[in-house]
């Protein structure tokens, strides 16, 4: 198999996109991806579909896929470092859903999606333990999923308030990407949470990032909260993007030479409220449309 930096050339440039997950639009005023695409195709070049295999796809995702529109598959139910999680029924479900979505790639938070085995009521999301011993198991899981699906699998830095381990998050994911020979999805809002939690400036650790492996970015709103004197960021996917996140996104766009996609995560907000956010992200990445591929 060619190395990732050769493989990345075959990945399509998706431009700006929007995310969804099962039932996201049940909330009043939530974003209708197809309506956004009708009104502003430049903002909805693709749909990133959050998938729990046990739930499958909702009507929005099916309608988008039925139109042959571009997608990415964002998993929500795999602990990549756990070989027991790669059971045959789950893998069959992933393949079936990928067959329907025909995603450009798979991606998702490379953290702990569930305690114990995959089961009802087990869902959570915690970041990986940031130690060198955690790199190899995670990389092996990424390779296993890539082999099982035939698609590139991009690990994403998860959100969190409690980060355990001595490594910087970016250093950890750089090691994972090198070991798995894969690309990266950098969630700018999640990274801002980490930097704040560690008392670091927004761009700390940037020089160690293999920027040519960064294929996708996430930009999302967040809210600063206070817990007994501790300031932390709630990843609320609202329309207020924190200044740290903007700073990270701007610098990441400038450095990520193989960037293919940016998701603006705002699935529970009305279209009118999110358009300014898309416009500001678009201004960071001027040649953003599929036509720029």
């Amino acid at each position: 198999m060619p190395g990732f930096l050769d493989r990345v050339r075959t990945l399509p440039r998706l431009g700006l996109g929007v995310s969804t997950e099962y039932g996201a639009r049940r909330q009043d005023g939530a974003l209708d991806p197809l309506e956004l695409r009708r009104r502003r195709p430049d903002c909805a070049g693709f749909l990133e579909v959050g998938v729990e295999v046990v739930k499958g796809l909702d009507d929005d995702a099916r309608a988008w896929a039925a139109g042959g529109l571009p997608t990415t598959y964002h998993f929500l139910d795999i602990n990549l470092d756990d070989p027991d999680d790669f059971d045959a029924p789950w893998l069959a479900g992933v393949r079936a859903i990928a067959g329907e979505l025909r995603p450009a790639w798979l991606c998702g938070d490379a953290g702990l999606w569930h305690l114990g085995r995959r089961d009802r009521g087990h869902m959570l999301l915690l970041p990986p333990i940031l130690v060198d011993e955690a790199v190899a198991p995670l990389a092996e899981g990424l390779c296993a999923l890539r082999e099982a699906t035939g698609l590139e699998v991009l690990p994403e830095n998860p959100p969190g308030a409690a980060f355990v381990g001595e490594l910087h998050l970016l250093d950890f994911f750089a090691r994972v990407a090198e070991r798995a020979d894969t690309g990266l999805l950098l969630d700018c809002a999640h990274l801002a949470m980490f930097q704040r939690a560690r008392g670091l400036p927004p761009r700390a650790g940037f020089d160690g990032v293999p920027w040519d492996r960064v294929v996708e970015l996430h930009v999302a709103g967040g809210r600063v909260r206070n817990q007994a004197g501790l300031e932390w960021v709630e990843d609320d996917h609202g329309t207020d993007v924190l200044p740290d996140t903007w700073e990270i996104a701007g610098e990441a766009v400038a450095r990520a030479v193989n960037l293919r996609a940016i998701v603006v995560e705002c699935e529970r907000n009305p279209i009118e409220a999110v358009l300014p956010l898309f416009d500001r992200v678009a201004a960071l990445w001027p040649a953003r449309g599929p036509e720029a591929a």
Binding site: A161, A162, V164, Q227, G229, L230
Partner: peptide
């Protein structure tokens, strides 16, 4: 681990 981060 700061105990406050466990309670957010």
């Amino acid at each position: 681990v700061d105990p406050r981060t466990l309670a957010v």
